[in-house]
């Protein structure tokens, strides 16, 4: 990869294009922008191939870090993100009016709308750590590395993001879109961070 093997990049693209595209969507709330971010990310990755860790391992976090940076140029402010999220949600409604969507697609649409609504209530830095850690399953230390911020900052941003999201539980919008409370639902304390940190130590 570091030496610029084209086949390695082709493989990387096949493996990660979809993930980068969806990550970019969560950060921009705009499918079209997400496509641009995805394309630019791989071009950037190629240009910055010498920044890959020599020891190897999966390149996905590195790539998502680049994508996060690229995506920043696509949304300059929370208001704009909210506008894009509303537009994306409205576009989904629009398709719904015309098409005979299956039950599964309706579910996906609702879930996506709920996700957008939730994400649009966060600030950009919170959105970034949340999508990396929650959607992409990155450890705190890894997210910190790809974002170039201290681990403590990742943790505090996440904690704030989760706090904000938790306040949403009573919001009408989410309640009507989610199934009744799952039986295995966890209590709302902050042990998540502690468990998470322990796990992070194993990596």
């Amino acid at each position: 990869m570091r030496v610029g093997d084209p086949d390695a990049f082709a493989e990387l693209f096949d493996e990660c294009a979809r993930a980068v595209y969806n990550h970019a969507f969560r950060l921009t709330a705009d499918w079209s922008a997400a496509k641009d971010v995805m394309a630019t990310t791989f071009m950037e990755a190629w240009r910055r191939r010498d920044t890959v860790d020599a020891e190897g391992g999966t390149l996905r976090p590195w790539l998502l870090g680049i994508a996060t940076n690229v995506a920043r140029s696509h949304h300059r402010g929370d208001r704009r993100y909210r506008a894009a999220a509303s537009a994306a949600a409205a576009a989904m409604e629009d398709v719904e009016d015309h098409a005979e969507a299956t039950a599964g697609r309706v579910d996906d649409r609702r879930t996506l709308q709920a996700t957008l609504t939730a994400l649009s209530l966060l600030k950009r830095p919170e959105r970034e750590v949340l999508t990396l850690c929650l959607h992409e399953g990155m450890a705190y230390a890894e997210a910190a590395r790809v974002l170039g911020i201290p681990v403590g900052t990742v943790r505090s941003r996440l904690s704030r993001a989760r706090g904000r999201l938790r306040r949403l539980t009573d919001a009408q919008l989410l309640r009507e879109k989610r199934e009744p409370t799952p039986a295995n639902r966890q209590t709302q304390d902050d042990r998540g961070c502690a468990v998470r940190s322990a796990q992070e130590g194993n990596r």
Binding site: A17, W31, L134, G137, R185
Partner: peptide
């Protein structure tokens, strides 16, 4: 990478839906 169980709650607020290109 599996999520710790405590993340289930946040996940229910922030579900994962993906689209193909």
């Amino acid at each position: 990478q599996p999520h710790p169980a405590e993340w289930t709650e946040t996940q229910s607020l922030l579900p994962r839906v993906e689209r193909d290109l």
